[in-house]
Design a protein around this nucleic acid. Structure first.
Lengths: 218, 218
DNA sequence: TAAGTATCGAGAAAAATATCACGATAATTA
DNA sequence: TAATTATCGTGATATTTTTCTCGATACTTA
């Protein structure tokens, strides 16, 4: 009963996608020595509408002060807590090709609550080694280890043709959420969270806009 | 006045983001020997609504046949032409860190109309070499070469702190569209297309859903 | 050839999301 | 202290996106 939120409103996906952008900006402003920020300022900076920014921020639970806005440090904290990025969630990464390696190498995912505890591949040459301090294990161990380590997130960076197979292994291992980078639709049982992160989606938007622009210029 | 298309309806962004997913599925079905496909089938496969699929497809200009649906080959062609993925657009990639290298290595971007003709970096050790057949040049040459080669797309894979600087160079070089992977909001002049492709956006959706799920389970 | 069926296309309705409008409030200035 | 100003929170409105509904059509089967 203590977790009695007044009236539950599910967070819109567009809001969730904007929150990280606010976070980047806020960290930048904090770095620059700013103390407070208004929704107006954020909106101008990112070309959004101030009301939209305010409503987005409202979802994270913080309340601001008229005339002043929000304390930057508190707002950062509010967003991070809302996304649970202040706690680390252990994750497996499957597929140590170029994208997988890049992700392990990025190293900043801990800032976003993602902690890669192990990577998996079938390539004998890599198994047993580490990539940026993350050990690479054979794919045959995914299910057992995921179960025993209570892994919640699986990140799929294998080619399209093996993505479904890997997904099934992760699900069998008890993973609750899958972040899929393979350019294919994988099927998951009811209740498993699936988030597709295909670059081609973003590229499609760019391509189409560029296309329109070129048409207009002729 | 001459560009008087019957009634212009701008394509919704959600539609643009779904089109690549249809494309992946269609290529898979074609590979499997299928000839035709219905919006119902696509919808079931990707867990969308059939009407939505039909409306999305309608934007690409193809028209289907009752009872039969669409010829897969023609539908693929229609989507690819709509996104201009049947033509190659030359692009520069700036920043040959792990993500930049991964993107050059992916090699399949040509399927999506993106042709990396050169990469740029400041690292003396890499300049002059090639990464997966793409030559790496010093950043000082971006502006001049972009102008002379009439480059339309710039892909930014540098760290946040230099992203704005690189953006300005690309704009000066006459680039029309920027695909930004740096976790920061870069500013571009009116008329320049900017598409942000930050993984953190996708991760935020995943994190929040997982968070909610865990809360519910307790 | 006629009846049955799956699908399309498109207009209408519903739902989700974004923007507007405004009273309330905290800081600043006169 | 009073007037002014920037901003918040929120209800109302507008816009966009999704879903529903249904007549028309092409294929399949009796």
């Amino acid at each position: 009963m203590e977790t009695k939120t007044k009236k539950f409103k599910p967070t819109p996906e567009p809001t969730l996608r904007r929150l990280p952008r606010y976070l980047h900006l806020l960290k930048f402003l904090k770095e620059a020595g700013e103390k407070n920020v208004s929704s107006t300022l954020i909106a101008n900076e990112l070309s959004f509408d101030p009301t939209q920014v305010r409503k987005d921020i409202e979802y994270t639970g913080i309340i601001g002060k008229p005339k002043t806005g929000f304390n930057i440090t508190e707002l950062i904290k509010s967003i991070e807590e809302f996304l649970n990025w202040n706690n680390q969630t252990d994750a497996f990464l499957i597929g140590t090709g170029s994208l997988g390696t890049a992700m392990l190498g990025y190293g900043r995912f801990r800032e976003y609550g993602l902690n890669f505890v192990a990577a998996f591949d079938n390539d004998e040459l890599i198994i047993g080694k580490t990539i940026h301090d993350t050990p690479v294990l054979p794919i045959g161990k995914v299910v057992d280890l995921a179960q025993r380590m209570h892994i919640n997130i699986g990140v799929i960076t294998v080619p399209a043709h093996s993505a479904q197979y890997i997904t099934d292994l992760l699900v069998e291992g008890g993973v609750r959420a899958i972040w899929n980078f393979a350019p294919i639709h994988v099927k998951v049982p009811e209740g498993i969270i699936l988030e597709n992160a295909q670059l081609t989606q973003s590229l499609a938007v760019l391509s189409h806009k560029l296309n329109e622009k070129m048409d207009r210029e002729m």
